[in-house]
């Protein structure tokens, strides 16, 4: 069976949807030459009316996509750099995402915002290293963060078919992940459905994005000490609270491994909700980025600012040793 990479999964999902539905088109910077490989082969396959190269005019083309969506199209915008999602934060959260409500349900805005290289990139500077998925969850925008190629295929397909705006974060550190798949098994995955990557009984580790793979390595390292369940929400909004509750009901202990900044990040929301609504036998912990930005320019300065495997292992041990509340 073929090996599917994360980027190839994105290319395949987008191409399949463009084949299936004439209203789908992709726009973005350098899409003609497929700089990121997401649109590789598309210009020849679909032509310039459906592969729309745009100038560096992010607010303009994000609003443009809102208009095209109002008029019946399903735009997929590819962004190259995570901070560009912050440049167009108003256009996504205020123009597109509120429109269905403000129009009393008359017209939805089915745009997919595809960010296929989200997160820290060694040496590329503070302005290329953000991971702002929590901000979209905060604003109530449907947001997905798949960790694996099959989940990337399934959730990009769902995002494009969804009638609301959806932001897709493809973690940079997941792009090299490959899976052996049967293409026939690739299928849409519903929003708000989590996934148990490794079952366990002592502690639930909620891992987001590329940290799923790190958490699986830590769970394996700790296998002699504890039975760690690794649970991946896959969507940060809507969030599979019932799935998390099910895991926590089994383990009673919780650690969140999150690539957000600490303040007001998804880790904070997951801990708060678990503390309010779930039966935890010990205080939970989170491992995240620090508050604020990371340096981004020098690996030795950045690596200490990333959520790491040793930090997760320490947090898991600490929660397991905790005598309770």
């Amino acid at each position: 069976m073929p090996k599917l990479s994360y980027l190839k999964a994105l290319n395949r999902a987008l191409g399949d949807e463009m084949d299936r539905d004439e209203s789908v088109f992709v726009l973005g910077e350098d899409v003609n030459f497929a700089l990121t490989n997401v649109t590789a082969g598309f210009l020849k396959r679909f032509g310039p009316d459906r592969v729309v190269e745009v100038p560096l005019t992010e607010q303009g083309f994000t609003n443009f996509a809102t208009g095209a969506a109002m008029a019946g199209r399903r735009p997929v915008i590819e962004f190259q750099i995570p901070f560009l999602l912050l440049l167009v934060f108003e256009q996504i959260t205020n123009q597109a995402n509120k429109f269905l409500m403000m129009s009393g349900g008359q017209r939805s805005v089915p745009v997919t915002y595809l960010m296929p290289a989200a997160g820290w990139r060694a040496g590329w500077g503070a302005q290329h290293s953000d991971q702002p998925y929590s901000m979209f969850a905060h604003m109530g925008v449907k947001t997905v963060l798949p960790a694996t190629p099959t989940d990337a295929y399934g959730l990009l397909t769902t995002a494009i078919r969804d009638d609301d705006p959806v932001v897709f974060f493809g973690p940079l550190a997941s792009l090299s992940v490959r899976e052996i798949v049967d293409y026939a098994d690739l299928a849409p995955i519903p929003l708000g459905s989590g996934r148990v990557h490794r079952p366990g009984t002592d502690v639930t580790v909620v891992a987001l994005g590329h940290l799923v793979h790190e958490a699986l390595a830590v769970a394996e390292e700790l296998a002699d000490e504890a039975s760690v369940e690794v649970w991946d929400p896959r969507s940060v909004y809507p969030f599979d609270w019932a799935g998390l509750a099910e895991s926590v009901a089994k383990t009673g202990r919780l650690v969140v491994f999150d690539d957000s900044n600490r303040s007001c990040g998804m880790g904070a929301e997951i801990l708060a909700t678990a503390a309010e609504e779930m039966r935890l036998v010990a205080p939970p912990k989170r491992v995240t980025r620090p508050d604020g930005a990371i340096v981004g320019a020098v690996p030795e300065l950045d690596e200490v600012l990333q959520p790491t495997r040793p930090q997760l292992a320490e947090a898991v041990r600490s929660v397991l040793k905790s005598p309770g509340w």
Partner: peptide, 9 residues
């Protein structure tokens, strides 16, 4: 920009 998108579609 929204107007441009509607007009394009």
């Amino acid at each position: 920009g929204i107007a441009a998108g509607i007009a394009w579609a």
